[in-house]
Amino acid sequence: MPYIIAVYDVGQKRVGKMLKLFRRYLIWVQNSVFEGDLTAAQVKQLQQEAEALMDENDGVVFYQLRDERYRERIVVGMDKAERSRFL
């Protein structure tokens, strides 16, 4: 299962909707940065749902890490990440 890091830059009117969408799939790290394990189908679904919310000036970037050897996570300062997606 690939490990995904996703970041988005969207207009202020869509920030809340995009935040809710990404929190359904991934763990919030900070502001518009998310990470977590997703299946290929989940990645595709998230991409489609995000695209449906975007306008022509918005952008989303997905980084896909396929190998666990590259998953080291180093945090400098306060770690804002929620390790669980459950509220």
Rank of each mutant, 00 (worst) to 15 (best):
R69D: 12
P2S: 15
E51A: 13
F34I: 10
V7I: 14
E56P: 03
V76F: 14
A40V: 11
Q64K: 08
D67I: 04
K80C: 13
V10A: 03
R69I: 01
G36Y: 00
K20Y: 02
N57Q: 12
D67C: 08
Q48A: 14
Y3R: 14
D37G: 00
V15N: 02
L46Q: 02
Q48W: 06
A52H: 13
V10H: 00
Y8N: 05
R83Y: 15
L21A: 04
F34V: 11
A81I: 14
V43R: 05
I5C: 05
A52C: 03
M54P: 07
V75P: 00
W28F: 08
G11P: 01
V15P: 01
F22Y: 07
G16F: 02
D9I: 07
V43E: 13
R73M: 06
M18L: 09
Y63V: 06
S84E: 12
K13T: 08
Q64Y: 02
R23T: 10
V43S: 08
Q48D: 08
L65K: 08
D37A: 03
L19F: 10
A50H: 04
L26H: 03
V33G: 01
Q48L: 13
L21C: 02
V61A: 14
Q47I: 05
V61F: 07
A41C: 10
R69C: 01
L26K: 02
V60Q: 00
F86P: 00
Q45K: 14
V10N: 03
V76N: 06
V61L: 14
D9S: 12
E56M: 04
E51T: 13
T39V: 14
Y3I: 00
G77Q: 04
G59D: 10
R85L: 15
F34W: 12
I5T: 11
Q48H: 10
E82A: 14
N31P: 01
A6P: 00
R69H: 11
G59H: 04
D9F: 05
Q30R: 07
L21I: 06
L38N: 03
M78S: 05
G36S: 11
G36Q: 05
T39M: 15
Q12D: 13
E68I: 02
Q64E: 09
Q64C: 09
R66H: 09
F34R: 05
Y70E: 12
G77A: 11
R23E: 11
V60R: 01
V43N: 01
P2I: 04
P2K: 15
V60P: 00
D58N: 11
M1S: 15
R69Q: 12
Y3E: 15
A81Q: 08
E35K: 11
G77P: 05
G36W: 00
V15G: 02
V75I: 11
K17D: 14
Y25V: 07
L46C: 09
R14P: 01
I74A: 09
